[in-house]
Simulated assay, not measured.
Amino acid sequence: MTALFIGLMSGTSLDGVDGVLADFGTTPIAVRAHASAALEPALKAELLALNQPGINELHRAALAANALMRVYASVVKQLLAMTSFVPRQITAIGAHGQTVRHQPQMHDGTGYTLQLANPALLAELTGIDVIADFRSRDVAAGGQGAPLVPAFHQAVFGKPDQTMAVLNIGGMANLTILGPARTDDVLGFDCGPGNALMDAWCLRHLGLPFDADGTWAASGQVHADLLNTMLAEPFFALLPPKSTGRDLFNLDWLELQLKGFPNVMPVDVLTTLTELTARTCTACVQTYGSKSKQLIVCGGGAFNAHLMARLQALMPGVVAQVSDAHGLPAQQVEAAAFAWLARKTIRREPLDLKSITGTRGARVLGAIYPA
């Protein structure tokens, strides 16, 4: 076993695959390389469609998983080329897969979470052991299965003498509160939508995958009544542990919110959606992380200048900074987390996520697919 692991992440935003080659032989961990690959429009559209019931789902999901693994393998190839490492020098790949359904504790009391992947194919394509399916064991043990990254946040961002808050804004937004020193002081949960609704609205009205720098949102006005209608969504009032996804926050949900407001300009809808993300995230920080004077922001939302400005304006007593300022670039955090989780699996180290997901106790997460 070497200290080298690869982490691969394709998030709810569907904006592509991020991969890192992480070296755990140093403290803190060192990212030796970072690579990304966009998803082809047809694959992106299929993955998005598979978030909802449809015809011939099993067949389509299997083929989409195969296609996604080929993108994953291309990112691995990039990482190896950038570092001159060969497959036998990498202990394992941590592969998240693409979440298409997330319904923990629903239906039969256990529920499920589904990340499309074909880890066996990825092992064949790369010649490296693959660790996947990290969330299912947590759900089986009574947990939400998400978010998993707060434990990693503690490892890389935790301070022995202060409370820290880490906000990951991907398709959904999740918050981590890190108490001083001890792992059992970690609290983490989903706040609500991050970029998913904003991105979908931009695609519909501008034909663009996202609002670069938040420029379009910054040009509009918040519609107060629409915002209040959105904030009445029951999910926001739930107590942690809680998690969510496109099962709830999707265009159908947005259309339902807009029914009473037919004359709102599209730009003002986007401005209001951006404000929704900012308000729900800051409310969570203020409720659960009131002792924190620093907010570390990662994920795609960290690149939205308007959103970052709104977060800072709503929390004048907190310094909001992109995670780059704390040693790990915003686009690398989640991929690095899955490299870290893969290492935990290989070493059979259980994670106690009771305060994060509500699981019954410490469990080893993930399944191993040998090369």
Rank of each mutant, 00 (worst) to 15 (best):
F5M: 13
G25C: 14
R32K: 15
E46L: 14
E46G: 00
L47Y: 02
N51S: 14
P53Q: 13
I55M: 13
L58P: 04
A65R: 01
N66L: 12
A73G: 09
K77P: 00
A81E: 14
A81V: 08
P87D: 15
D108C: 09
T110N: 09
G111S: 07
Y112K: 02
Q115K: 11
L116M: 10
L122I: 12
E124C: 05
G127R: 01
D129T: 08
A141L: 15
G143Y: 12
Q144R: 04
V149E: 03
P150M: 03
H153D: 13
G158F: 02
M164F: 00
L167T: 05
I169C: 09
I169D: 01
I177P: 00
A181D: 06
V186M: 04
V186A: 08
F189N: 07
P193T: 01
M198S: 12
M198Q: 05
D199P: 13
W201R: 01
P209Q: 00
P209Y: 00
D211N: 06
A218M: 05
G220V: 06
L231Q: 12
E233D: 15
P241Q: 05
K242N: 00
Q257V: 08
N263A: 05
M265A: 13
L270Q: 12
T287H: 02
G289Q: 07
C298R: 03
M308S: 01
A309C: 04
Q312L: 07
L314M: 08
L314P: 14
G317I: 09
V318D: 00
A320C: 13
A320D: 04
G327A: 10
L328S: 00
P329C: 06
Q331R: 15
E334D: 11
R348A: 15
E349Y: 05
D352I: 06
S355E: 11
T357F: 13
